[in-house]
Design a protein around this nucleic acid. Structure first.
Lengths: 192, 192
DNA sequence: TGGTTTCGCTACGGCAAGTATCGATACCGA
DNA sequence: TCGGTATCGATACTTGCCGTAGCGAAACCA
């Protein structure tokens, strides 16, 4: 026990700090060419990295995209005292993130893949949705199925607009969405 | 002009009545294998038809799926006297359709393809969404952007649930969705 | 200096969308 | 009865992308 096995540096050549470069290349490639044309080859080329290097770090394209989205989203800014403020800020936050160049396309694209690929669905659900869902559950004091409904409505609406028009939802409609959701979650709640 | 050129039977061997067979094979294949595994080859085999025959009738897989969905959906049942009844019936109708075996998977799958393929997006928007949007506009007396918002919320929510869980939304949540949407569209409307 | 791991490169296997070609078949008009 | 036209089935093919394998070179540590 002179030195704990954990946190011991692994032998061999250390990995270069390429993750951020690859993430940036992923978003810019998706933004410029669209999700379908953003092949792993092209992303690797845009990052100045070999394709095999990407597959050495991420097991699949879906995993890469999800990690890229996690990096792009960061933690939920759960600020606000009242439940209404918390919900409203969360809605405007996710809408703004989806509006960032490349993020909405990547999100909609990986969601599309998840529809027909259970492996991608598992990654998307466990690594991306669950953390935010749990944080919302705790912050809002809502049961799981209500938070899942909240996520379905908010994310589903934003992605449907993005998918059908190719453009993120405009602020006025995001405000309408927030208003509608807040009104729904205001009645009969607050089980004191 | 003894006989108008239109509605004149085209020369050559007439097409066999295979569309319904192909549609049924498409839905059952998507239902059993999932959207990604429902290749055109497999659909053709399930229908007892050559792949070339399918490509002679539909220009792409996306066009086939959209036509299949049009056939499966049929016209919107716009029954009900009040706006609330019209909206509620439309919501429950589309939710029930998406819950039918194969329909939800096919819908979510082709929507996914549309995200990154502008050609599929155009087909989906023009052939599937626009007719229903126009019918709703007229029936509800709402401006275009409000109906688009309505569609984004309803269809987006249902597809998000379908995509993330693989199962259609349960009735209780569909009822909550309808309640939420109706409350939002009730206030300040009815511009008499 | 040897051991271990990563990196870039090239090539390959697998799968699915969509195309091309050919013989056979069905309907029409003369 | 006989050409003209268009569809059907079968097979093979091209193209594009995901993911893997193998190789030499480089980086870090003991």
């Amino acid at each position: 026990m002179t030195r704990t096995t954990t946190s011991a540096r692994p032998p061999g050549r250390p990995r270069a700090g390429l993750n951020d470069v690859v993430f940036a290349a992923t978003l810019s490639t998706v933004h410029e060419l669209g999700y379908a044309s953003a092949t792993v080859d092209r992303i690797a080329a845009a990052a100045g990295v070999a394709k095999t290097t990407i597959y050495r770090r991420w097991p699949s394209k879906g995993a890469l995209i999800v990690d890229c989205l996690l990096e792009a989203f960061g933690p939920v800014p759960l600020e606000g005292v009242s439940r209404a403020e918390l919900m409203s800020s969360a809605i405007h936050w996710i809408a703004a993130k989806i509006g960032e160049p490349g993020v909405g396309d990547a999100f909609a694209g990986v969601f599309s893949d998840a529809v027909s690929d259970p492996a991608v669905r598992e990654i998307l659900s466990a690594r991306l949705q669950d953390p935010y869902r749990l944080a919302l559950q705790e912050a809002l004091g809502e049961p799981e199925h209500r938070v899942l409904f909240f996520v379905d409505v908010v994310v589903g609406t934003l992605l449907h607009r993005m998918g059908m028009t190719g453009e993120p939802m405009v602020d006025a409609d995001v405000a309408a969405l927030a208003e509608m959701v807040l009104a729904h979650f205001a009645d009969g709640a607050d089980p004191t």
